Simulated scan of single mutants.
Amino acid sequence: MHRNETDTGRTEVSDNDGVDVPSVGRRAFFSGAAALGSLSLLSSAQAAGNGPSVVQTQGAGGLLDPVTRYPAPPFPQQPQNWPGLQSRMTPRPDCGEEHYQGSGRLAGRKALITGGDSGIGRAVAIAYAREGADVAISYLPQEESDAREVAGLIQKAGRKVVLLPGDIRKEATCQKIVRKAVDELGGLDILVNNAGRQHYCEDILDLTTEEFDWTLKTNIYALFWLVKAAVPHLPKGSVIINTTSRNAYQPSHILVDYAMTKAGIANMTHSLARQLLPRGIRVNAVAPGPFWTPLQVCGAQPQSVVQHFGEETPYYRPGQPVEIAPVYVTLASQESSYVTGQVWGITGGDGVPG
């Protein structure tokens, strides 16, 4: 193990499996205006002038049309190498950086979110912090720049943040991530298994064992290892929230390995919910449809699909991560004490699952 001071004055601790743990932040109660988080007129992507513009007209009571609220395709082709950075996307995903307002629904809670640097994980991290939780996020070392942006937003909300870079395809890394989150946060009562790998392959004859193993290790093995490491630390009233997918129920023919893992996650959610409820731990999952995240531009879909991503939904657009974060807040909150073993589909109107 070695220790070195970062250029931000934070101390990083690392050892042989490559998990560096910067811990930053301060504690303060944060409250806001709306129970599920209110969003302002324009998304952060639009405010920044990145990508398609949307002209909003407020209706009665200042309500907004959900169909035209956020950018719709066509989007420019924008291939990135895995794992992708959302800071390079056009339009940039709206994760609630400017507009999510909390109301203390998770005050005093301690959350670990995998894949918390970008996309849905980032939106959940921001929402949890603004609802009063301290947050640890795990991510790949290549995503450090996005992760540090999130850290700044969590600090700004007055909460503690712990950064946990590392490759969760290794059991030792998953164990270390949980241990460091518990140590640095002073406990743990929310685990969000959100990190995932998706890479399309049009012909199973071209799907290599290495690629297949990569997807399973990231999506299934890591979830198993993280849950196993976390459960001994979770007090009664804790929650585990998994991210599955519409592909668990409507599998794409070019996502054989990914869809299989997402079906497995939905199945694991049901069985773990029954197993862990006697310990006072609730387990649920969220099944997103097409959401605009870095996953889509680094091999999850062909670029021709990315250009028209979300166009097939009744909304004629993809969802923005900020639009799904309130579901993760609700599932984590004490108000949902009778909710376990559920998979909530947020798929843009196609009713799956439901």
Rank of each mutant, 00 (worst) to 15 (best):
G310W: 01
K262I: 03
V286C: 05
K170W: 03
D117R: 10
T8D: 13
V24F: 14
A266D: 05
A172N: 12
G84L: 02
G264R: 04
T218H: 01
V343W: 03
P302F: 02
F309E: 03
A129E: 08
C298Q: 09
D134C: 13
P76F: 03
A136R: 08
H270R: 15
S23N: 11
V339P: 09
Q198H: 06
D167E: 07
A273R: 05
V297G: 02
K180N: 09
C201E: 14
S336D: 05
R10L: 13
F29R: 15
E335V: 15
P73W: 04
V182M: 04
A107N: 09
Q307P: 01
G25V: 11
N219R: 04
G102R: 10
K170V: 11
Q275I: 10
R148F: 12
E97I: 05
W214F: 15
I204F: 14
L164M: 04
Q77F: 03
R148Q: 14
Q301I: 06
P235F: 11
E98P: 00
I220E: 05
A300K: 00
S238F: 06
W214H: 14
Q58A: 15
P22G: 04
Q142Y: 00
R27H: 13
S53I: 03
R282F: 13
V256H: 06
S238T: 01
D183H: 08
R3V: 15
A259H: 00
I126R: 07
G280S: 07
N193D: 11
Q334C: 02
G351S: 08
T313I: 04
R317H: 09
L42W: 02
L42E: 10
P235C: 11
S43W: 00
G349I: 07
R274D: 11
C298G: 00
C298M: 01
Q101T: 15
R10N: 12
N16C: 08
Y338S: 12
G289S: 04
E5Q: 13
L140T: 06
A123F: 06
A266M: 03
G96H: 08
T209G: 07
F212G: 02
T68K: 13
G115C: 04
D189Q: 08
A300I: 01
C95W: 07
Y221S: 12
I265T: 06
